[in-house]
């Protein structure tokens, strides 16, 4: 049995009267790529931010490597890389300076930072833009920069919020490759996405979040077996998130012939 990396137990997060995450429990094991799926506002980002310690749980608890998320965040962040949904950077700092700054904050010397960041930046085709102010970067470029910054300290766990959102196909392919390599090397990944094909391609296990609760969870094969017909992730997704007739939306205007 592989080691439990992320352990979420009965996690509840309320914003005032609004319950964003409701009694959520799941585990992510070492070497696993776990995809958190769900419609907008399902609580994916709230769950991830609670893991990072940006949000405090209203009830229940979340831990990473046995360390409690929130109070033990500094220790956790030594082993976790985090890519937010919409990364933003300081105005007036160039891309390179942001990478250097992040490296310094992780206690890495400049040579190590250059050695680790160089190949990644090349692979994501960001190395040309590093001299620009990051505030002028496009959304995709910011996302790439944030990804490089997130893996600089070689974390064993990657927590990625919509990782390929805003990336071009080349960068998406490169990022998928990096995520796969990370998992094969024994690291774990928790990613949130609403791209079903991405989850299908990358994830060893899938959790479908709906209204703050886990509507379905398990390896893709298992979910397929449970689904009555067809067996695509899309159908499972629409079934558990309460939409009975997904075909009506797609197929409404398409000629049945």
């Amino acid at each position: 049995m592989a080691e439990t990396v992320i352990d979420i137990r009965n996690l509840t997060k309320r914003y005032g009267d609004l319950t964003a995450v409701n009694d959520l429990s799941f585990q992510v094991l070492a070497g696993e790529v776990f995809a958190l799926l769900g419609p907008n506002g399902a609580g994916k980002t709230t769950t991830i931010r609670t893991l990072i310690g940006i949000l405090q749980p209203t009830d229940g608890k979340a831990s990473i490597h046995g360390l409690l998320c929130g109070p033990q965040r500094p220790e956790i962040m030594r082993r976790v890389g985090y890519l937010p949904d919409e990364p933003t950077f300081y105005d007036y700092l160039r891309g390179r300076e942001i990478i250097e700054f992040v490296g310094e904050m992780h206690g890495l010397d400049a040579e190590t930072v250059a050695r680790r960041a160089g190949p990644l930046l090349q692979r994501l085709e960001l190395d040309d833009a590093l001299g620009d102010y990051a505030v002028n970067f496009s959304h995709g470029m910011k996302k790439k920069l944030a990804f490089v910054a997130a893996v600089l300290h070689e974390p064993s766990l990657l927590i990625l919020d919509e990782p390929t959102n805003g990336l071009d196909p080349y960068a998406t392919r490169a990022l998928h490759g990096i995520i796969g390599e990370h998992a094969r090397a024994g690291g774990s990944v928790l990613l949130s996405t609403h791209l079903l094909d991405q989850a299908e391609r990358l994830a060893s296990r899938v959790g479908i979040l709906y209204r703050g609760q886990l509507a379905a969870c398990g390896p893709l094969a298992e979910l397929r077996r449970d689904a009555a017909a067809g067996g695509t992730l899309e159908e499972i997704f629409f079934r558990v998130t309460g939409d009975a007739a997904p075909a009506a939306e797609d197929g409404g205007e398409v000629d049945p012939a």
Binding site: I52, G53, I54, R73, P74, E75, I76, M77, R78, G81, Y82, P84, P87, T88, F89, Y90, D91, V102, M105, H106, G107, A149, A150
Partner: peptide
Amino acid sequence: TEARSLWMLYTFPRRIDSL
């Protein structure tokens, strides 16, 4: 002045207040 980049501080292995 940290403005929208405040999230970055949370990814570092140090306490926010010490940063």
